[in-house]
Design a protein around this nucleic acid. Structure first.
Length: 407
DNA sequence: ATTGTCCTCACCAACATGCC
DNA sequence: GGCATGTTGGTGAGGACAAT
């Protein structure tokens, strides 16, 4: 999808709306100067004297607290830097929702390094060596950010994290040609992991706290300054209103992504009505139907997972008085949804896998039933409120997936 | 072209669990 | 125990390439 094509009438609200999208890496990150500074400090020795030490840093914080933005900003700044002896620093960003296995993660890193990696035909080890040999022969050093690492840690192949941290050893090189930034939402999974994995991970943690209302306002204005929206289109009232709705100190989630999404949607409403200013009314409308789940999380779902999620939103809308539905019921609804879209429904085991994945990603809640039910079942729920918005969005994405022939 | 390797995806069978 | 559901390991097809 491209934006701002010259054949379109130019917007009176947005100067460059791509600067409000999730994949935009802002120039400036207000209230995260400290975290960036610490990240740089951790990596300084690695950069000054490449390969001398092995760096692992953990960025820890909730949704929309700036972890990803900080990592990507840092990454963009260091990518291509020349260090001592002609060594070049390279950066790779990997999101574990999109790349769910160690194999796929390494593929992404390889592609970011400019290698053409076949989709299949290689083993993990071969791939690892391939990457390493490339780094060695071109005298490059890799800094990789592994985002949504919680997901990886919870999979059966959770050892993958550990393997990554041991990559130098596995390949048998004394030089540490790769450093890692692991991004986590929380570390509760740590207790389930092996001691040795724990200890390799536990050092160098940088924490991210939810944003307050006034911090969010600063972030919004900074985006305006960077050219997302015309300055004349917004004012303090609108910005502060968003801050009030989202700010952690005002009882909101403190999620910057949500604040930016609100600004974006409000702008869209203003645009629709042909105005050149965003009004509080637009913000109110936007707030009533913001996407309950961040769009980037949604786009990373597989078709089957989207279908399952759609089944869940429908079921929950129909059953107005319950917040959770049992697994069996969900499966039936899922079958119907599949039929509706002409997709062959997957069987129980696979559907169960979908539920687990969505749960791991924090999209749905899944808990074991206590007494009261026949047998035991998993009760599946969705905390998000505007289900219709979610349903609409899902249908759109599912149709798109099917059109593109991705089964 | 053919063979070999090894990934991913989906499935099944078998076993586990917890109410009735 | 009987029943329905939850969970896991193993398997095999299919795909995409490398090697030959």
């Amino acid at each position: 999808m491209s934006y701002g094509g010259s054949w379109l009438p130019s917007s009176k609200i947005f100067r460059d709306e791509s600067k409000l999208q999730i994949d935009y890496v802002p120039r400036n990150l207000p209230h995260r100067e400290e975290q960036i500074r610490r990240l740089r400090d951790y990596f300084r020795p690695f950069m000054m004297n490449p390969g001398s030490i092995f760096v692992r840093v953990i960025l820890l914080g909730g949704v929309g607290t700036g972890k990803t933005a900080v990592a990507r900003r840092f990454g963009e700044d260091i990518d291509g830097l020349r260090a001592r002896g002609g060594a070049v620093i390279r950066f790779s960003y990997v999101n574990c929702h999109a790349h769910r296995t160690l194999f796929s993660i390494m593929q992404k890193m390889g592609r970011d390094l400019g290698l053409s990696i076949p989709r299949r035909g290689f083993s993990r080890e071969e791939l690892m060596h391939l990457l390493w040999n490339h780094l060695r022969s071109s005298n490059e050093y890799l800094v990789a950010a592994i985002d949504e690492a919680d997901y990886l840690a919870r999979t059966r192949d959770g050892e993958a994290l550990y393997d990554l941290t041991r990559i130098s050893e596995i390949v048998g090189d004394k030089l540490h040609r790769a450093g890692f930034i692991f991004i986590f939402r929380d570390l509760s999974f740590l207790v389930t992991l092996d001691r040795s994995i724990q200890s390799t991970l536990q050092h160098n943690i940088i924490k991210f706290h939810p944003y307050t209302a006034s911090q969010l306002v600063d972030i919004l204005w900074m985006r305006v300054e960077e050219g997302a929206v015309y300055e004349s289109a917004v004012d303090d009232t609108v910005m502060e209103m968003i801050g009030e709705l989202v700010g952690y100190d005002k009882g909101g989630p403190g999620d910057a992504r949500l604040a930016l999404e609100l600004l974006y949607r409000a702008g869209k409403y203003a645009e629709e009505e042909g105005r050149d200013v965003i009004l509080p009314e637009d913000v109110r409308k936007a707030y009533s139907d913001v996407m309950p789940i961040p769009r980037d999380v949604l786009t990373n779902l597989r078709l089957g997972e989207k279908l399952l999620l759609l089944a869940l939103t429908r079921l929950l809308q129909r059953k107005k008085f319950v917040s959770k539905v049992p697994m069996g019921l969900l499966e039936l609804e899922y079958n119907e949804v599949c039929e509706e879209f002409g997709v062959k429904p997957r069987r129980h085991t696979t559907v169960w896998e979908y539920v687990r994945n969505l749960h791991r990603m924090g999209v749905i809640s899944a808990e074991k039933s206590r007494r009261g039910q026949r047998g035991r079942t998993t009760l599946v729920g969705l905390s998000a409120v505007p289900l219709q918005t979610l349903e609409r969005e899902l249908i759109k994405m599912i149709k798109e997936d099917i059109r593109r022939g991705l089964s």
